[in-house]
Amino acid sequence: MNITEAFQENVIIVSLDGRFDANTSDAVEQFLRVRISESKFQFVLDMANVPYISSAGLRVILAVVKELRRDNKGDLRIANLQKTVAKVFEISGLNNVLGIFKNPDSAIQSFTD
């Protein structure tokens, strides 16, 4: 899993490249939690290059979102889901509780709407 980031005003766009599963979820969680500890609370997770997600990946997303939404600190929003991964979000019900956007720009825009 390759993790890169870009900044747009207060929003951090975190791009993942690779399978998001038990082997990689710890790295993603650690990356996000370091940024949260630095008082960064608005994230867009660009998953254009994530072909696969398992329960371990879903758990990290939900746990981070839960923490960010506590006391209305911020949020993590999802962009660029591949078809199979989007299906997993739908099956798990995550699509009902997360902000999911077609591309990072619309996800970033949603923080100012």
Binding site: S55, L58, R59, L62, A63, K66, I91, S92, G93, L94, N96, V97
Partner: peptide, 18 residues
């Protein structure tokens, strides 16, 4: 469900997906 599993963290149960 997976969602409830996260909401009810430490209640000691699991989900089909896991």
């Amino acid at each position: 469900t997976m969602l409830e599993n996260i909401e009810k963290e430490d209640w000691g149960h699991s989900s089909t997906i896991i």
